[in-house]
């Protein structure tokens, strides 16, 4: 049986419907910042169609699992659903009037590579636009596409916040597009009144985006250049400042080293602790299954840099959670 994430969809729906009690991030400091926002005229949530979780990994007749109550719609947002059922629904798309599909991937394994390829083929044949943003807040389709219209009208996708700045102070931060979970409203609210001269990247954006909290995966993904969806989501929010602080978003992963070679950009210091903790968990999980492991094998089996892995191993040893015997790591 496969289980499917049910929480992210709840957050997206809560954000879209802008329920009064939906966001609780600011606690007692809530100023109902979301009350000035709402759905655009001409937009409508035609329906929420639910599939059960868990479901068998392999369905013999996926078509029998297509819910009978799918309403007519222009855009389908498929959040963490069984990929075989999704493919069946895409095949039936013309009967719903479907023009575009968004399949957000907050975690890389929400859909397999083969299902993604099949979905592309089905949609291409039917003339339907499809996107697999990973994570959802990296979703920025061309403005003149159906998907672009969807992002603009429903205000979800890669964050877009209009800042009004006077004397380097942000006097207003209006959200045009929010992360689908709604985090951007919270970030924008706390940007108002702050000075561009302060470290608002860390003190406002990272802080509030993180504590909202962002639920994108912390799994490193080769498709993201070895970054995690969580990191990409953070960068998308830092991009809010890019018209004002052009150095903020630097997407080039390679930098020139003092030795004249191109090397991976170093990880920002504030991420180190999080990465070390992630590496510690990975090491403990590995030892859970195999008792002991050589340093060489460990390096091959977990996707962390040698420096992060070494820090994790030192910390684990210091805490008495592992034992090292030469180059072999084991449980005490």
């Amino acid at each position: 049986l496969d289980t499917f994430d049910t929480l992210f969809a709840d957050r997206v729906i809560g954000n879209l419907l802008n329920r009064v009690d939906f966001c609780t991030a600011c606690g007692s400091e809530c100023i109902r910042c979301r009350k000035v926002y709402g759905m655009e005229p001409g937009t409508e949530l035609a329906g929420i169609v639910s599939l059960p979780s868990p479901m068998p990994h392999l369905l013999e007749r996926p078509v029998e699992h297509v819910p009978p109550d799918i309403p007519e719609h222009d855009v389908l947002l498929a959040i963490a659903v069984h990929e075989q059922v999704l493919l069946e629904i895409l095949k039936q798309a013309p009967s719903f009037g479907l023009r575009a599909v968004v399949v957000p991937l907050e975690t890389p394994d929400w859909i397999s590579e083969s299902a993604r390829a099949q979905a592309h083929i089905i949609c291409e044949d039917l003339g339907i636009e499809i996107a697999f943003p990973k994570p959802f807040c990296s979703f920025r389709p061309p403005a003149n596409s159906v998907l672009g219209e969807f992002r603009r009208l429903f205000h979800i996708g890669m964050p877009d916040v209009s800042l009004e700045v006077r004397d380097r102070t942000i006097t207003s931060a209006k959200v045009s597009v929010s992360a689908a979970c709604g985090a951007t409203y919270c970030v924008a609210r706390w940007l108002e009144g702050r000075s561009l001269s302060e470290n608002i990247e860390l003190e406002v954006i990272s802080r509030w985006w993180h504590s909202y909290p962002c639920t994108a995966s912390m799994e490193r993904d080769p498709e993201l250049g070895g970054e995690t969806p969580l990191h990409v989501a953070g960068q998308a929010h830092l991009g809010i400042l890019s018209p004002w602080k052009s150095h903020v978003v630097d997407e080039d992963p390679l930098v020139l080293s003092p030795l004249g070679t191109m090397v991976q950009r170093p990880i920002p210091p504030e991420e180190n602790r999080r990465n070390i903790e992630g590496a510690m968990r990975a090491v403990l999980a590995t030892l859970e299954t195999r008792g002991s492991i050589s340093l060489e094998d460990l390096r091959g089996s977990v996707a962390f840099s040698p420096a992060i892995l070494n820090m994790a191993l030192l910390t684990l040893k210091h805490q008495g959670l592992t034992r090292t015997d030469g180059m072999v790591i084991s449980r005490p």
Partner: peptide
């Protein structure tokens, strides 16, 4: 523009 959301719910 009409949007439909497909999601999973714990059964």
């Amino acid at each position: 523009m009409k949007l439909a959301i497909l999601r999973s719910v714990r059964s």
